[in-house]
């Protein structure tokens, strides 16, 4: 076996080893951001779009939900054992909060009920509803008696946990 061949084999091996690492990172990337398909689709649709409308508009339409002003975009835990946790909001999916394992936000709090409260969107307004919890859900200082709309930055207290909507 000639030296050149061996050197090629050697360099190829290192390249293939790194390819493995890059593929592994690719798997993680897909895990975090979803399949890369959507990107190529977006490119294709951009390419298909007429040249003049391409410049600002695709970017704008991408950010359409962000553009609306008072639309809260995430639910953030500000106090309690889960402080710092944030959940993305999407209008189609109500968020349930409680100790039960199938709740969207599981809070491990002695004062919370299994299904404690629900936060859902009603035509762009976000509404918090107490699901008959034992110790109640507080909006500011007031205990909730019926579903109430909430705005960005208003503290919702469940047991020792305080949540609020953020833009």
């Amino acid at each position: 076996m000639s030296d050149l061949t061996l050197m090629l084999i050697r360099i190829t091996f290192l390249c293939v080893l790194w390819l493995f690492v890059i593929m592994a990172v690719g798997v993680i990337r897909t895990d975090l951001l979803g399949p890369a398909k959507s990107k190529s689709k977006r490119k294709r649709s951009e390419r298909r779009a007429p040249a003049e409308s391409r410049a600002p508009r695709p970017a704008r339409s991408q950010r359409a939900p962000k553009g609306r002003r008072n639309e809260p975009r995430s639910l953030v835990v500000t106090k309690g054992p889960l402080a710092g946790t944030s959940l993305n909001l999407s209008p189609q999916h109500p968020i349930t909060i409680g100790r039960a394992n199938d709740a969207t936000l599981v809070i491990n709090d002695d004062y919370a009920s299994g299904r404690h409260a629900r936060i859902f969107s009603d035509n762009g307004r976000w509404i918090v509803e107490d699901l008959g919890s034992t110790n109640g859900t507080y909006l500011g200082q007031q205990r909730l008696t019926h579903p109430q709309p909430i705005s960005v930055g208003q503290p919702i207290r469940i047991g020792k946990t305080v949540l609020e909507l953020r833009k």
Binding site: L33, G34, Q62, R63, P65, K66, G84, T85, S86, L87, N88, S90, Q92, H93, I95, T104, L105, V106
Partner: peptide, 18 residues
């Protein structure tokens, strides 16, 4: 930290974490 939720990815929305 973002908890994984069982929500479906909203169509044509910004890259969501869930």
């Amino acid at each position: 930290m973002t908890l994984p939720t069982a929500t479906k990815r909203p169509p044509a929305a910004e890259a969501p974490t869930a």
